[in-house]
Write a protein that binds this DNA or RNA. Structure first.
Length: 423
RNA sequence: GGAGGAAUGGCAGAGUGGUCGAAUGCGGCAGUCUUGAAAACUGUUGAGGGUCACACCUCCGGGGGUUCGAAUCCCUCUUCCUCCGCCA
């Protein structure tokens, strides 16, 4: 959520930056300021009414003590009127505050100045590419065929148990999943991230605080009996550890990593691009989350990018890094780098990680602050990234590492798997 | 799931209708003393709105009510504790 204070002082720049998201920021922000002004006007009136009422109440108390009941009763009539007024003003105030809140919820984060304008995937900016794209033998298969051939993932079985998009991993497939999770967590903890295990269901307040609600209402599984949501990413529970927290500057940097399954309804997805592991309703992901001092957050973002690069180098997968354009940028993000691995058998890039700086956008909803050197509360910056999401990494490994003798497991994973080939 | 008890500032803990944004202790911060530190002593120390700055307003788990006036009384929800039941 954008800060009112900032909108008041930087409306022009913000509106301009929002154009990169292809939305009319100017009129939205104008509307915000208008509501804010009205809200403050009513607040002032209400405060004055309450102040008068408070003063009278004190007087009444004093009068009763000195036995002047007559005078006290006269004053009571006045407070009666004030009470009516303040009730009315209070209602107006909450109506305005709610409208303002609702409006602010609809405005996405301000893109960082480096974010390119654009409306579609092709407008994303490729920054970096590394790794060899292997030349596959004739008859090379896409991962969903390989999964069947080696009996390591059973998509149909998942359909029977639950539905499409809930695969069953078997044998070496299951072991490879576990290996990847352990490997990622080890890499992350070695880089200074503290491992956490967090709930996989969250309440509504958590959903709002990190921005999934109300923006992605229909994309999360909602357990209505208990009014809880299945997490679409560990970002939600991990970042919410810091809801309503005031840190000291010395607490920075804060780095956490956690493995969780992720649940996404993916309403409206269909077609060839969702085959196999390309898009699932339930998948595994290891997430990294940071809470940073505002002056350090972009350095932290760069560090996260370097960290993920190192993982992909070790896995020997061909990948590239993109800077997302305004049209592709997530609702809450100021700047996002996507990592994509090349799926040789499908001849396309698959997103495997998304690393973002949310600046104060989430912190404002979370009420995540720190005390600056003057003892004043300031909003912190939050960041997160996938390190990494499993299914497409797995797809990349299966497809790129296939040989006539079987799937050759990347060396770094062999100790975790206990085997070097899936045949 | 049933019965009872509780929820107050970073923590502990007083406060049962006005003098309470709230005693006291611990912790934090600043200072005195000290070569330095510790101890001791002194001061300071919740969050938000509002203002150029004050004033002023709101917040004692959440919501609603009674009252001129609520941390305090009533209703309701949530959470925690104790006992019982169930259970991986």
């Amino acid at each position: 959520m954008l800060q009112l204070q900032t909108i008041r002082t930087h409306k022009q720049e913000m509106a301009q930056a929002l154009q990169k998201r292809n939305i009319d920021g100017a009129s939205l922000l104008e509307e915000v300021l208008d509501l804010d002004e009205k809200r403050r006007a009513v607040q002032t009136q209400l405060d004055a009414t309450l102040a008068e009422s408070n003063a009278l109440s004190k007087e009444i108390g004093a009068l009763y003590k000195t036995g002047k009941a007559q005078e006290a009763n006269a004053l009571k009539e006045k407070t009666g009127v004030l009470k009516e007024d303040s009730k009315k003003l209070g209602e107006d105030l909450s109506a305005l505050a709610e409208a303002l809140q609702a409006l602010l919820y609809t405005i996405p984060n301000i893109p960082h100045q480096s974010v390119p304008a654009g409306t579609k995937e092709e407008d994303n900016e490729e920054l970096f590419k590394e790794g060899n794209i292997p030349v596959l033998e004739d008859g090379a298969l896409p991962h969903w065929e390989l999964a069947k051939k080696y009996d390591i993932i059973d998509f149909e079985l998942g359909v029977k148990i639950t539905g499409a998009g809930f695969p069953v991993y078997k044998g070496k497939g299951a072991r490879l999943q576990r290996a990847l999770i352990s490997y990622f967590l080890d890499k992350n903890t070695a880089a200074g991230y503290t491992e956490v295990q967090v709930p996989h269901l969250v309440n509504e307040a958590s959903g709002y605080a990190t921005g999934q609600l109300p923006d992605k209402e229909g994309q999360m599984y909602h357990v209505t009996a208990d009014d809880l949501y299945l997490i679409p990413t560990a970002e939600v529970p991990v970042t919410n550890m810091f809801r309503d927290v005031i840190l000291n500057e010395s607490d920075f940097p804060i780095q956490y990593t956690g493995y969780t399954p992720c649940f996404r309804r993916e309403a409206g997805s269909y077609g060839a691009h969702v085959r196999g592991l390309n898009r699932l309703h339930q998948f595994d992901k290891v997430e990294i989350v940071r809470v940073e001092h505002p002056t350090k957050s972009y350095a932290a973002l760069d560090a996260m990018v370097e960290h993920i690069k190192e993982i992909l180098r070790e896995l020997e997968l061909p990948y590239r890094v993109l800077r997302l354009c305004g049209g592709d940028l997530g609702f809450t993000s100021a700047l996002t780098y996507d990592f994509e691995v090349f799926s040789t058998a499908q001849d396309r890039w698959l997103e495997i990680s998304s690393v973002s700086n949310f600046e104060t956008y989430q912190a404002n909803r979370l009420k995540l602050r720190y005390k600056d050197e003057n003892g004043k509360s300031q909003l912190a910056h939050t960041l997160n990234g996938s390190a990494l999401a499993l299914p497409r990494v797995l797809a990349g490994i299966l497809e790129n590492c296939q040989t006539p003798q079987g799937i050759k497991i990347p060396k770094v994973l062999v100790p975790y798997c206990g085997f070097d080939t899936i045949a």
